[in-house]
Design a protein around this nucleic acid. Structure first.
Lengths: 153, 153
DNA sequence: GTTGAAACAGAAGTGCT
DNA sequence: AGCACTTCTGTTTCAAC
């Protein structure tokens, strides 16, 4: 799909997903390239929008969010939830999906009262179905380059 | 909840979620603190596990993942899917939740055949329900400090 | 909290192979 | 494409305030 991605790029992408603040020199040491070579590759990966940016990974619980919930909303036509979703800080993921449930969201709340307030507001857009997250097995796992995965044989 | 988080920390966390590679000097300019003061605060936020790390944000589509799907798995007792989930590179999120569906996963696939292979493997752990993502409204929205949000009045 | 200095590390540009 | 070299910027630690 993207013929320009080689093993060096794959490894750089992997390392930057583990630690986005790793220096170009350190990346070069790990992939056996010089620092300018790494810098040039990263610039190209950023320019081609393969690297969209670099984000600090924040621990919600450490900030007081005791509850994570997955809320499915069977959205009704003509109810524009996109704007609400963008403005509601507790909704950190929101996808429109196929099937009965028009939207799936991941929501953070300090406590059950807080969660209920959010559910009440989401009910304006359709019937909701809430599932509390008990365990987060993986969240934001590093993305691998698919072609390099499949062409290993 | 965390009495040590003030407006400076909140702003630093916000900026680092937008650009994790921003320099401490630049952060200092934006929050009106000196660079050593910013460095000390970040060190404290990292030590207290509020900042868990820094991740490159990779564009799945640019790497050839044309399909994102939400798969719900009604897991049956005694089927340990956690290990499979960890080892399957296509599963990038996985949560155990309350309710009928024991697990909710976000999955990347190159095409429908690729998606079907993953669903087939997940069927070993229980009956699955797959919804294709049509629109990603928000994914990984920046987390705000809840106490500072609510105590604005 | 601040500024300023020194030592070190990293980023970016240049030229060369 | 790659590397070596230089220069500028940033980080860290220290001092004194």
């Amino acid at each position: 799909m993207n013929p320009k991605i080689d093993q060096y790029d794959q490894k750089i992408l992997q390392l930057l997903q583990e630690d986005a603040r790793m220096s170009h020199a350190e990346l070069g040491r790990q992939v056996h390239l010089s620092q300018p070579a790494v810098s040039e590759r990263i610039k190209r990966l950023e320019a081609s929008n393969i690297i969209r940016g670099y984000r600090a990974d924040i621990n919600p619980k450490a900030l007081g969010y005791e509850i994570t919930a997955m809320i499915r909303v069977s959205t009704q036509q003509g109810r524009p939830y996109a704007q609400y979703v963008a403005s509601c800080p507790e909704i950190i993921d929101c996808y429109t999906v196929t099937g009965e449930d028009g939207a799936v969201m991941r929501v953070l709340a300090s406590d059950v009262e807080h969660l209920q307030r959010i559910i009440n507001e989401l009910n304006a857009f359709g019937s909701t179905s809430t599932a509390i997250v008990l365990t987060t097995h993986v969240s934001g796992k590093a993305i691998a380059v698919p072609s390099l995965n499949e062409n290993k044989d």
